[in-house]
Design a protein around this nucleic acid. Structure first.
Lengths: 233, 233
DNA sequence: GCTAAGATAGAACAACGTTCGATACGATGC
DNA sequence: GCATCGTATCGAACGTTGTTCTATCTTAGC
């Protein structure tokens, strides 16, 4: 009753990969345990192959990160393209940015690599174009359009970076909940001298247990309000 | 005429450090050659001591980075505090944000670590407080104040991250100038199909040779305009 | 002079990205 | 059937990194 071994002629089976599987497993590692979990050895073990095989598909870890990033940005781009059209371009910009932020929230590691994509081509550029096309519907100069899209991307990235560097490893392990983690900071802030830190005391209750999405949407709303003003609509 | 050797009894002189010198040299390494240049061995050599000695002052590289970051944020905080007071709190917020961005521009590596500071205390918190105090002068709810400061910090960080990850190592070595670097991207963009990428073609001339500070100020202006609208002033 | 704490340092360790050389596989030509 | 060439895989090794271990030197107080 020995189980049918998955080998031929006693030799160890050779693994056969593909660009897709390499990227998929790399993203899976990043999703499960964050940036530090993605090593060539861990990835090779997951693929059931050797370490050096990965170098057939990518020339370096930087390229692996770039391709993995572009891989998931492709999914975010698909989400954005699936969005219904709005009459108001600013409404559409808001919907796109929120969709983008949602995608990053599910993958906190994305924040650090989002803008690192050195490739000129790729899904990041398509996303950039997609956002920018909305500004073409606004009464702006080319320079204003360029700056507007940069500002919106900046808000997304800025919020995403906050997100990505928030968990200090305890909350990722599940040992400490996010609320408790925030609560610790809040408690330390409450113990500061109110005379020296009036603002911190003013907002500590808002900080405690705050929602990241709401924080992002508020920042986005300010930028979009400024943009609407600039477009004179 | 042998030079007076700086040693006693022929033995190799033991180095004597201090928290200040360790942080100063660490920052110097980061300034000169970026994030990857800061290694314990390079730092030890610079301090004229052994590798393990650094561990007397910091428990890990993460802590070293945190302390180094807070060290330079302290300088930025001093710059911000030296700013003249404005009658309009939003004008003062703008001046503070610009000062902050200037400090980050001189140290591109700061962008990646700016928000990574896990310490609750420190200069980052004081800077946060300093920004927040201006919102106390505006007619806003506590939540709006919290979100406003987060938004402004987000704009700074978002632009700073762009900045920090821009040079791909050639421009840092001085082999390729920033303009030429930007020009390469611009050229590649110009060769894209205008039907597929109308926005990219619209702004490529603006992108080519653009000024980072101007880009940042535009993004900041949109946020501040939105904030002014929100405060009903 | 002795001792305890403060401070320094060399050597070793484990993990990482990367390279090298050898080897197997699959289609093609004959 | 067989040699051939480009594709693809793998184990082993290299150099560098953060970190730890253990030993040593220095200083202050008694």
């Amino acid at each position: 009753m020995a189980p049918q071994q998955d080998r031929s002629r006693g030799g160890r089976r050779r693994a056969s990969h593909s660009m897709e599987s390499v990227l998929t497993e790399a993203v899976a590692l990043l999703d499960e345990a964050g940036e530090q979990a993605l090593t060539f050895r861990a990835l090779a073990q997951r693929l059931g192959g050797g370490v050096a095989s990965i170098y057939w598909y990518v020339a370096s870890k930087d390229e692996l990160l770039d391709r993995a990033t572009d891989h998931v940005i492709g999914a975010a781009l698909a989400d954005v393209e699936a969005l219904p059209a709005h009459e108001d371009p600013i409404d559409e910009l808001r919907a796109m940015a929120v969709t983008l932020f949602d995608a990053i929230m599910e993958r906190p590691w994305l924040g650090a690599y989002f803008m690192r994509n050195t490739d000129v081509q790729g899904n990041a550029l398509r996303l950039y174009e997609k956002l920018g096309q909305q500004t073409l519907r606004l009464d702006l100069t080319a320079r204003q359009r360029f700056h507007a899209v940069s500002a919106i991307v900046g808000v997304v990235v800025g919020s995403a970076v906050d997100l990505g560097q928030e968990p200090p490893q305890e909350v990722l392990d599940g040992a400490v909940g996010r609320d408790e983690f925030l609560g610790r900071y809040a408690q330390a802030w409450r113990e500061l001298d109110p005379a020296d830190f009036p603002f911190v005391h003013e907002i500590v209750d808002e900080f405690d247990g705050h929602d990241d999405i709401e924080q992002f949407r508020s920042a986005l709303e300010l930028t979009l309000a400024g943009l609407r003003l600039q477009a004179g609509a």
